[in-house]
Amino acid sequence: MGLATAPLDRARQESVAACVRSALESVFDAVAATRADTAALLERVAAEGRAPATADLAALRPGLHLRLARQELVSGVGFVAAPGLLSDVPAWLEWWQSGAEGDVRPLLLDLDPAHSAYADYTHWDWFALPRDTGERAVAGPYVDYLCSDEYSLTLSAPVQVGGRFTGVAAADVYLRHFEAAVMPMLHQLARPARLVNARGRVAASSDPSCLVGSLSKGPQFARALATGRAQHRDGMRLVPCDGVPLVLVVTAGEADEAPSAT
């Protein structure tokens, strides 16, 4: 690629990153609404001088059902309580998802640690990243054995009340739906590209050498997200998706490596 065409290609990359951001912000809107509803509910319960219980979380259901109906990419949505938050159970997911026929149904899980492999969900990225960083996160893609047995992404954000972490608000996106939304954008680029999360997990790829779901080796993608600016690292151009925790990674050409490139 010549120097004359490099600025055009960089502009196209940044346009693609912005389009990816727009697609996922609609999902994060659902997460933010769930977080706001949950925080308000927990604050009301605390004002009554008692600990919340699973019955209190039923008040979230109308909003969760509405988000499933309105957000095209969202396949599941809900609140996942921090262990010990609720007075009547050690752990809980107030989680609803779309059925094959378009119906809305609850996720019913056995969270008894005596005989459930899913009793401790705190090690999953969608829970651990928001808890540990205080920021919203994109986890996956991974096979979601917990909810759907589908290859999925989970977008999540911490819920805090009075400075205390109480759990996460989250939404699932089936990977096939995400790829349908973003792959046409990646194919617009002059070079193979991929979208990776903060840990380098590939969420979508037009690069045959980087398979979806694999870990992308190289620079610190979390650091690129923190700067919010496009940069060059190890022969790659990293373009943060402007507020959404994904990075567009494109193999850099000679013109991109010029000192004036950003």
Rank of each mutant, 00 (worst) to 15 (best):
Gly76Ser: 11
Thr227Ser: 05
Ala46Glu: 01
Leu153Gln: 12
Ala32Phe: 12
Gly140Leu: 10
Cys241Pro: 06
Leu146Gln: 12
Pro62Lys: 15
Ala128Phe: 06
Asp56Pro: 06
His123Ala: 14
Asp132Ala: 07
His232Trp: 03
Ala169Ser: 05
His65Asp: 13
Ala171Glu: 03
Asp110Phe: 02
Ala32Glu: 14
Val247Phe: 15
Trp95Gly: 00
Val247Ala: 15
Leu186Asn: 12
Ser75Glu: 14
Gly162Lys: 14
Val45Pro: 13
Ala23Thr: 09
Arg44Pro: 02
Leu73Phe: 04
Val138Gln: 01
Ala4Lys: 13
Ser148Trp: 00
Pro141Ile: 15
Asp29Arg: 11
Asp29Thr: 07
Arg50Tyr: 13
Cys210Phe: 02
Leu146Asp: 08
Ser152Ile: 12
Leu189Thr: 08
Ala58Lys: 14
Ala59Val: 02
Ser26Gln: 08
Val80Phe: 08
Val80Lys: 04
Thr251Cys: 14
Ala100Trp: 14
Thr262Gln: 05
Tyr151Val: 06
Ser98Arg: 13
Val247Cys: 15
Gly63Glu: 01
Ala117Gly: 11
Leu146Arg: 04
Ala258Ile: 02
Asp256Trp: 08
Val196Asp: 07
Leu42Lys: 01
Ser22Asp: 15
Gly78Ala: 13
Arg12Val: 11
Val173Ser: 14
Gly253His: 06
Gln97Tyr: 03
Pro219His: 11
Leu41Trp: 08
Leu86Thr: 02
Val77Cys: 10
Arg176Asp: 13
Ala55Asn: 06
Gly84Cys: 11
Leu41Met: 10
His177Gly: 09
Val27Leu: 15
Pro158Ala: 13
Cys241Asp: 05
Cys147Arg: 09
Val80Met: 08
Leu107Phe: 00
Ser156Val: 06
Ser214Ala: 11
Arg194Ser: 10
Trp95Leu: 05
Ala169Trp: 07
Leu68Asp: 11
Thr38Cys: 07
Ser98Tyr: 07
Ser152Trp: 12
Pro259Ser: 09
Phe178Gly: 10
Leu186Asp: 09
Ala33Arg: 08
Trp95Val: 01
Arg191Ser: 03
Val89His: 01
Leu225Ala: 00
Val202Asp: 05
Arg10Ser: 15
Ala55Asp: 13
Val244Thr: 03
Arg176Val: 14
Tyr145Gln: 10
Gly102Trp: 12
Leu186Phe: 12
Val16Leu: 12
Tyr121Trp: 03
Asp29Gln: 09
Pro259Lys: 07
Arg199Leu: 12
His177Ile: 06
Leu175Ala: 04
Pro130Leu: 15
Leu189Gly: 08
Leu109Gln: 03
Leu111Ser: 02
Pro184Val: 01
Gly78Lys: 12
Leu24Asp: 09
Ala181Leu: 09
Glu43Thr: 13
Ala40Ser: 10
Leu129Ala: 07
Tyr121Asp: 00
Pro184Phe: 01
Glu254Leu: 12
